[in-house]
């Protein structure tokens, strides 16, 4: 009997590809953002708003279990550089899916790559895609206990967007508790309150992206 120490991450295979993606993005000057949130929290709406208001060169990859509906929405909103990944049942995107899809994108021609993950707060949090920034999206109608229920995402997300903020006041939602919960998971977390209906919070969010890109 022979024992062999490995001490390797269970995501070692995914991690190797993710590191490769990160290198390719870096060499092309692309700052990659992995956006994770529940189905219906407004990830695609945020990217539609971004397509119309973020005055930078970027592309979008959208992961869904079925259909390219979300990528089509983003294309219709004016961002032609949007690509769909249909996982066919998979509950998360993997680094290899991003590696293959990124080959279709002119990376030299963009400065940012937004990756909208499959709507899910558990599995996507465990898979590095080679992004520079992991962002969690919450929304007011989902209720104010999401952060505590899904720690694996919120300990990893560098920033949290609380979306549909225009609905605050119509629902029982303790936003101060949500922010405190976010900080309990990650004391350095950056929190944004946004609404695609009013545009609230997006100037700060876009500036944050520009600042992060300067330092990556």
């Amino acid at each position: 009997m022979k024992t062999q120490d490995l001490n390797l991450s269970a995501q070692e295979s995914n991690q190797l590809i993710a590191s490769g993606n990160r290198n390719v993005f870096y060499e092309s000057g692309v700052f990659a953002v992995n956006i994770i949130g529940s189905p219906g929290c407004g990830k695609t709406s945020i990217l539609e708003y971004t397509a119309n208001h973020f005055d930078e060169k970027f592309a979008v990859i959208v992961g869904d279990v079925k259909t390219a509906l979300d990528a089509d929405r983003i294309i219709k909103s004016g961002q032609k550089n949007a690509y769909a990944i249909e996982t066919g049942g998979g509950c998360h995107l993997t680094a290899n899916m991003i590696r293959e899809k990124a080959m279709e994108i002119d990376l030299k021609g963009i400065d940012y790559l937004f990756i909208e993950n499959v709507g899910n707060l558990v599995c996507p949090s465990a898979f590095d895609l080679g992004e520079n920034l992991k962002i969690a999206v919450l929304s007011i109608p989902e209720g104010d206990e999401k952060v505590r229920k899904y720690p694996s995402l919120f300990i990893r997300a560098a920033a949290v967007i609380i979306n549909k903020i225009d609905l605050l006041g119509f629902m029982d939602y303790d936003i101060e508790q949500v922010k405190a919960d976010c900080r309990a998971h990650n004391s350095n977390v950056k929190i944004f309150e946004t609404s695609v209906k009013t545009g609230k919070g997006f100037d700060e969010f876009f500036q944050y992206l520009r600042d992060q890109r300067k330092h990556f």
């Binding site: 009997m1 022979k2 024992t3 490995l6 001490n7 390797l8 991450s9 269970a10 070692e12």
Partner: peptide
Amino acid sequence: SFQRQITSGKDVIIKSIELKD
């Protein structure tokens, strides 16, 4: 305080394997 760094409990690790002779 909640000002902290989480030092363990985040990962799934393959520690070691045993091989038959």
